[in-house]
Design a protein around this nucleic acid. Structure first.
Lengths: 120, 120
DNA sequence: TCATTGGATAGACATCCATCTAATCAGAGC
DNA sequence: GCTCTGATTAGATGGATGTCTATCCAATGA
C-alpha cells in the first residue's frame, strides 16, 4: 500500500526560519496543494467542525452543489495528502482530520523568525 | 489595479473549529494553492530565511534549475496571493513575506482553537 | 437471494497550470 | 543615446486537474 503520509515524517522542525530542501518542499507542497481548492478546504472545515470530530460522506455531499463522485474525488485527494482519514462503520464511512499533519503545515507558516525590528 | 489580498480581510477568526462559508473557502484556498507547489514553497522559505528578511530575485533564481521567467511567474503567484511583496531598489527587486497573511493561514490549520489571550 | 442505499472507481472532457523561448521594460554606467 | 544586466510580460505547449456520467463495490434488510 503506497501510502505516502510524508508530512509527519518531514514533520515539525522545518519552519520558514531556514530554507527548505527540494525534497522537503515536495512533500509539504503536497499538503498545501490539497488545501488549495475551495471545495476541499470547506470539506476539511466541515469535517473538523462536525460534532464528534468526524462526519460521514452523506453529510458532506449535501453541503455542495456537486455530484457524489466529485466529492468522493476531493476526499480522496485530502486522504492521500494525509490530511484526513476515513473509516467505514456499517453502511457509512466517517472521515476525521489528522491533527498532526495539520499541525505540521500550520507550524511551517508560523512567522517565528520575524524579528521585532520593524524599522523601515 | 484591484489587488485582491483577501486573506487579511477574511482574517483570523475562521478556524477549523467552525465550518467555512463558500466565500471564505474561496479566498483562503487561494492562499494555500499558492503554497501548493514545491518551487513556490521553497521560494517562500528562501525569502523568509534570508538575511534581513528579504531576498532579491537574483539570489532566488540561482537556487533552482529553472529559467528566470519561470521563477518570475511563481513569484507573481505568491505576490497575487498576498503571501509576499516586492520592492524595487535600484537595479534589483527585493521580496519579503507578508507575515499577517501567513499567520492567517497558519491559524486556520491549528488543530484546536486555543484562544490567544482574548476570552470568548 | 435480491433490491436498496452509501460510496468509490473508471473514463471522458474542458480547463487550468508549470514551463519554456522570445520579446519587452527598467536602471546603471559609459 | 547606447548598451549591459536584472526582471517581467507575452505567447505556446504538454501535462495536471476538476467535473461529469456510467458503472461497480459493500453493507443492509426483506
Amino acid at each position: 500500500m503506497p501510502r505516502q503520509l510524508p508530512l509527519v515524517d518531514t514533520c515539525c522542525p522545518p519552519l520558514l526560519g531556514r530554507p527548505l530542501t527540494a525534497d522537503q518542499s515536495v512533500d509539504l507542497a503536497r499538503g498545501f496543494k490539497a488545501l488549495g481548492d475551495p471545495v476541499r478546504l470547506r470539506l476539511l472545515s466541515l469535517i473538523a467542525s462536525h460534532a464528534g470530530g468526524e462526519a460521514c460522506v452523506c453529510d458532506l455531499t449535501d453541503a455542495f452543489d456537486l455530484t457524489g463522485p466529485t466529492i468522493s474525488h476531493h476526499l480522496k485527494v485530502l486522504r492521500e495528502a494525509g490530511v484526513i482519514e476515513g473509516e467505514r462503520r456499517g453502511t457509512w464511512i466517517y472521515y476525521r482530520t489528522q491533527p498532526a499533519v495539520l499541525q505540521t503545515l500550520s507550524t511551517l507558516l508560523q512567522p517565528d523568525h520575524v524579528e521585532p525590528s520593524r524599522a523601515n
